[in-house]
């Protein structure tokens, strides 16, 4: 799971891509995603991947994207083998294998460059209820806090003689109970305090709260989206009207 989370967790960055409007980043990732589904030749797929690699480099996240790609390659290798066995078509098999990598990368780019704050804005844009959006925000906000809690509880229980790494599978699962109970109790108490603090700061006072952040499309937003649209158009054109565009 670590590779998966590593490829999808936001870390602060200061590239042009990080600064893009979150809506542009979402649109761009959706376009790249669909383009990979439409691409019917290795050439088209390579174009999409090159575009994504270029973006990642410009967003200074190439290293992390490359790591995601390397890990995904294990799965895509499996996809390739299965496809070769069943279709006996080498090109299609390669295409499917690369497509899997491309799909993961297209979503990964969105998540690693979009802060939870921006995700919240995107959710608001989709008119999700305020309570749902806020639940998401606090969940993300308290992940690091609960991780620290867990470490503290584990240390406390270990110091009282709890041996986490001992015994068979069932025993090990049972060993987690003294960790989980305090963690749950802690969280319930925390949620009570959170509710009080929310009331004290007028949560839910007006039906349509305002927002400190405002996003306006800039030239960079338009540029990135246009490039993705162009790529999408090539793939869509070749998908509907002509034979796949292959290497010249």
């Amino acid at each position: 799971m670590m590779w998966l989370s590593g490829g999808f967790i936001f870390r602060r960055g200061d590239s042009f891509y990080h600064r893009l409007d979150p809506r542009a980043k979402l649109l761009n990732s959706v376009l790249m995603f669909t383009t990979t589904l439409l691409a019917r030749s290795i050439f088209e797929m390579v174009l999409v991947i090159l575009f994504m690699v270029g973006l990642s480099a410009a967003a200074t996240v190439l290293k992390r994207v490359a790591r995601t790609m390397a890990f995904t390659a294990l799965f895509s290798g499996f996809i390739f083998v299965v496809n070769v066995l069943f279709t006996r078509d080498l090109e299609t098999s390669v295409l499917y294998a690369i497509r899997f990598i491309a799909i993961v990368v297209s979503t990964s780019i969105f998540f690693i460059t979009t802060s939870p704050d921006e995700l919240e804005q995107v959710m608001k844009m989709f008119r999700l209820p305020r309570d749902v959006v806020f639940a998401f925000v606090t969940a993300v906000r308290f992940i690091p806090v609960m991780m620290l809690d867990t470490i503290q509880i584990m240390d406390a229980q270990k110091s009282r003689g709890l041996e986490l790494e001992k015994g068979n599978l069932i025993r090990r699962v049972r060993n987690m109970i003294p960790i989980l109970i305090p963690l749950v109790v802690n969280s319930v108490m925390r949620s009570g305090e959170l509710a009080e603090a929310m009331e004290a700061r007028a949560y839910g006072a007006v039906p349509r709260p305002t927002s400190l952040l405002v996003y306006r499309a800039t030239r960079a937003d338009v540029g990135v989206v246009c490039a993705a649209v162009a790529l999408f158009a090539i793939a869509a054109y070749s998908f509907y009207f002509v034979v796949p565009v292959r290497f010249p």
């Binding site: 839910g204 007006v206 349509r208 709260p209 305002t210």
Partner: peptide, 9 residues
Amino acid sequence: GLENLGVPR
């Protein structure tokens, strides 16, 4: 708190 109160940006 200000967002909750609907204070203009």
